[in-house]
């Protein structure tokens, strides 16, 4: 199979890796680049576990061809913590017990961070809308919504 070099930015750092022909962005990030935070849930765009940002917009990595991200800025949950300091959203997820098995958590965090970057004061309805593409099997969603709202209202730490 043909391989093609792809230059892109991952969480602010320039990166380059070979993409297999037809490889999707999820496999490319996990196998080719080694960022394991995007999760493989369904592989067909219905669960949201692989949510990443491409040039600031949330995308389902399993539905994006890796070759198409040439020159793009990719954001994953691995980029949320900087220099050992967690993003306030990550702190809020801990404070609100917003994870159990944790499989949906990276995708949830990416969706929530994208929402707050675009809309720092979302309503509950806007939070619900923002995570409506991310399935969670454990929490019943309420702790996740509460965690995101707590950051939105500027009180990340209880």
């Amino acid at each position: 199979m043909a391989r093609r070099p792809v230059n892109f930015t991952l969480n602010g750092s320039p990166r380059a890796a070979f993409a297999e022909e037809g490889q999707n962005l999820l496999e490319f990030l996990r196998r080719g680049v080694g960022d394991l935070t995007p999760k493989y849930g369904c592989g067909q765009g219905t669960c949201g576990a692989c949510t990443v940002t491409v040039n600031g917009r949330t995308q389902l990595a399993c539905l994006v061809l890796a070759e198409t991200v040439e020159g793009a800025e990719i954001g994953t949950a691995a980029g949320l913590a900087t220099s050992g300091t967690l993003d306030p959203l990550q702190e809020a997820f801990m404070d609100h017990f917003a994870a159990q098995c944790g499989y949906c958590t990276p995708g949830m965090l990416v969706s929530a961070r994208a929402l707050l970057d675009a809309n720092p004061r979302p309503t509950r309805e806007e939070v619900v809308e923002a995570i409506s593409g991310n399935l969670c099997r454990c929490t019943g969603y309420e702790p996740i919504i509460a965690a995101i709202l707590s950051v939105a209202e500027g009180r990340a730490r209880a």
């Binding site: 369904c42 219905t46 619900v128 409506s132 399935l135 969603y141 996740i144 919504i145």
Partner: peptide
Amino acid sequence: DFNAYTLPGPG
């Protein structure tokens, strides 16, 4: 798949 296996979402 998750298109047909429905679950209540956050809404």
